[in-house]
Design a protein around this nucleic acid. Structure first.
Lengths: 146, 146
DNA sequence: TTATATTAGTTGCATAACTAACTATATGTC
DNA sequence: GACATATAGTTAGTTATGCAACTAATATAA
């Protein structure tokens, strides 16, 4: 057994993503307090559709770093809530395009405000330079680990 | 709707902890390739017990940032694998102390080596200073979001 | 054009997460 | 001592995750 146990112990925090979990929990709680009965994972899908409506499930996999099965079931649940619908692509009949319903649109501003407020609280006292470094490190760790 | 959509989009990556998820998946895969049939979540419990054997479930909650119910079931599963056992505390009969079994001890070196190797790969090209900043930012985000 | 390989999506199985409601034990206050 | 409160752990219910095996549609190659 090598003797750099402390180093590994610290790095485990990075693996675990403790801070991002804390932010996710806080955002989830803020949603609930506002009477928005969606999960943060569902919100992450809606978030991408608000930016660009009508994405394929495969595209949602790429943009949210999830596998196909996870997206299938997330869309199932959001569809049950009546917030999105699948429409088969005419160009390629294997593909489902996912579209927001009218019911989803009013949620956008409320959740954006909650997300902004949550992030502002989470990032208090942290400089733009530090955030840039975190983003850069995350990107490189992600590329190194694919 | 405010107009800093790009900023929010980027910050969402922080919420999501994409990089740490990638590392966790890679470590999981390395465990499997080595014939170690444990999950990374189970490993995170064993990791803390290797550092200090005989922790209460509550202490494991604190150290691994999980809630009580999650720890109960994680310990259930690790107990089924025969790697830990619960022993009721004599001082306080509400408390379960969790101890490693003899079967768990040989796993320590193999998993430490895999974890080291995985982390070294993940952290290639990233300086100690950058890691310190990430750790510091994580800690402050966590404190801000509790 | 027929056989093969690839891609998009679904389903089954196991693990894990959180909340809320619950039991049992300890502690604190009157 | 008795009643209220807090703490440790379990259980039920719902959502989400990953892998592997599967179907259906498309693309490639002989």
């Amino acid at each position: 057994m090598s003797n750099n146990q402390f180093k590994r112990g610290e790095l485990y925090s990075v693996i675990n993503g403790v801070a991002s979990t804390a932010v996710a929990r806080r955002l989830q709680k803020n949603f609930r307090n506002a009477g928005l009965e969606i999960t943060i994972e569902q919100w992450s899908i809606l978030y991408h559709l608000w930016k660009e409506d009508g994405l394929s499930q495969q595209e949602l996999c790429t943009r949210t770093y999830r596998d196909k099965a996870s997206i299938t079931r997330l869309i199932d649940n959001i569809e049950k809530l009546g917030l999105v619908e699948r429409i088969a692509s005419k160009d390629d009949r294997r593909v489902n395009m996912v579209y927001l319903t009218d019911a989803a649109k009013p949620l956008q501003e409320a959740t954006y405000n909650l997300a902004n407020q949550t992030m502002n609280e989470a990032l208090q006292g942290i400089s733009k330079e530090e955030i840039e470094i975190v983003k850069s490190v995350f990107q490189r760790v992600y590329e190194n680990s694919k």
